[in-house]
Nucleic acid binder design. Structure first.
Lengths: 354, 354
DNA sequence: TTGAAAGCGCTAACAA
DNA sequence: TTGTTAGCGCTTTCAA
């Protein structure tokens, strides 16, 4: 029943079987036969044989010859995070719908790794690259340019290639306003500027913009913001947990109200929480820049920002489809998600009978 | 400064530059030169030139010639889930450490899609395939066999290829025991068999085993379990939410204690929660088969099962490295995670300065 | 409307 | 210790 032993059929096999030349077979099987003006009958003959012999193209051979591959890359900081994994999900669907094959890789925010991984992808002749949240977008850009690879930055902008990012400033403003208002309405005592903090992020474009938005609203609502209220802990949960711990040790409590720079940093808060009794944070108000379906239901109010990764990916493709796109930055509006909100995700589009 | 225009150097370019033959250059540059007994000096000469001219191998050409590719596939149901995305993270690190290139794809639990995606990967001559949580592992197996592709099932077993899965029965027993004990100690009134439910999953091996474990412990602790207590809603959050809604409508509350078959189903619970006031579930106890760092901190006790995907991936490689591995199933022990526990993940291994 | 032929860049016998 | 040679399977002029 199975053709286990036999090697895969090639266009030469079909050429012999059909009595046509390899080039005709090739044209029929790669879809270019209409424009090569091959007779319908010939095409059908060959397609029939291909079916019968379970022909599938050798994509490495095709790619070698045409110096393309049908592969489209997405470079992420990490897989293990709802923001990036939902981006991967969206990306994959879009690439598939274009008849190409997605390759999603992560570089753990290491600039060397980023470049090296992209060079590997280039060795496979990938056709296009989405660079999402790269620590060093311009370094990656260099590598791409050298290889003539079309690419676009997502999430973190570069200066040399087109970029699509969230409107981090506006998102941070929405988020900051929401948490301060919530804290104001919750508390018995009015909240003051030294009770509103920001944790997480580092010296990248997104963090800077978010900090700017945070400051902007905080000053407008509560007056001058003490420098100590901004704690850029990087993106690691461990460091973030330590920052909360330090704060807690010196103040005996957490800030009444704080902005967490990403869901990765929010995981740092979880690590802190795990070490302390429930009552320790009975009345905190948290804002998190990123959306996570479970993060929205923690035992205290968590406002979240959901970034529109569908729109970012779509815009990325639009840019790559255009000829000679300028190296400008496109802003995509994110959305404020109130506490206890379960949004639907990219998977909800599926036919899901059970 | 940049070589923008120039095309990439090939072994022929280096052959001319070095005065050696292409095959010598090839051997030096692909690492097989020691066993081809090429002079150290020759090797160094060529390596120097390669460096200087920024040579990188064309992996499609290499793959075409050697009918391999250096690509290793991981087929997932979805990306957008902490269990699978952390598996992807682990997989990627392991593949990289072996000098190969990971390709992680998702097939949305659609058996046709699963087969078709694998055929595409085969067209790229991938070297090995990890099939994780496939709806139809044996269908995928057929495709692999036909192409002579080494493969292993992860998470959901097949009958024809080696498989590595969680001990779902034992995991379910731990989880069921934990939530019943918790409910017993919380409640004023002793809990009875008709107050302990299971939601989610469908007719796959993992679900069956989990249901078996659930029943086993439930019967041992509380006596005979009414059939209505098992609600296999499939894996979609939407369907799961509907099941909770239906239950709630007819009982005016949620079960005091329930087992949720996966974190995807737990998302269904979030959707339900979002529609109802906090008080509705002041005293429920939940068990979720899967670990999610935020799921562990919801406003009611959530016991979770963390599956050891690192061990599963490692075992998968061990199997693929062995010759003619038998089609047996390897069980990996999962771990019970009490409420409010933040575990470290695959990323914590990184050097994370900021 | 189709075929012949030249390679894409690399590897691996086999010779030397 | 190194070179020669024949492809891997496909695309793509150019000619018929």
């Amino acid at each position: 029943m199975s053709d286990m032993g036999k090697k895969k059929a090639t266009i030469y096999d079909l050429s012999v079987l059909s009595g046509c030349s390899p080039s005709t077979v090739s044209a029929v099987l790669n879809g270019s036969w209409r424009k090569r003006r091959i007779k319908e009958a010939t095409a059908q003959l060959i397609q029939g044989l291909a079916e019968e012999h379970q022909y599938t193209a050798n994509l490495q051979a095709r790619g070698l010859r045409s110096s393309r591959s049908g592969l489209v890359g997405l470079l992420l900081p990490i897989h293990d995070n709802r923001y990036f994994s939902s981006m991967a999900q969206t990306f994959e669907a879009e690439v598939r719908s274009r008849g190409q094959c997605p390759v999603v890789v992560s570089a753990c925010r290491d600039p060397d790794e980023e470049r090296q991984i992209v060079e590997t992808l280039i060795s496979y002749s990938i056709d296009e690259l989405f660079i999402a949240g790269a620590t060093d977008p311009d370094g990656v850009h260099e590598v791409c340019i050298k290889a003539g690879l079309r690419h676009v930055n997502i999430d973190l902008p570069g200066t040399r290639a087109p970029s699509v990012i969230s409107d981090n400033f506006e998102g941070a403003r929405m988020l900051t306003r929401a948490i301060i208002e919530q804290a104001q309405q919750d508390g018995a005592v009015p909240i003051t500027a030294d009770e509103v903090y920001l944790f997480g992020g580092r010296d990248d474009h997104a963090s800077r913009e978010r900090i700017r938005g945070f400051r902007d609203i905080k000053i407008a609502m509560l007056g001058e913001s003490p420098e100590a209220c901004i704690q850029p802990t990087g993106y690691s949960p461990a460091m973030t947990a330590r920052a909360f711990e330090t704060f807690y040790e010196s103040h005996g409590k957490l800030p009444r109200c704080f902005f967490v720079n990403s869901s990765i940093n929010l995981e740092g808060l979880m690590r802190f929480l795990g070490q302390h009794p429930h009552e320790t944070f009975a009345d905190i108000v948290v804002g998190c820049y990123d959306y996570d379906p479970f993060g929205s239901f923690l035992p205290f109010p968590v406002y979240m920002i959901r970034q529109d990764s569908e729109a970012m990916i779509a815009e990325g493709f639009r840019i790559l489809d255009s000829t000679r796109p300028p190296a400008i930055t496109h802003l995509i509006q994110p959305m404020l998600v109130p506490p206890r909100t379960a949004l639907t995700g990219p998977l909800d589009a599926l036919k899901d009978i059970d």
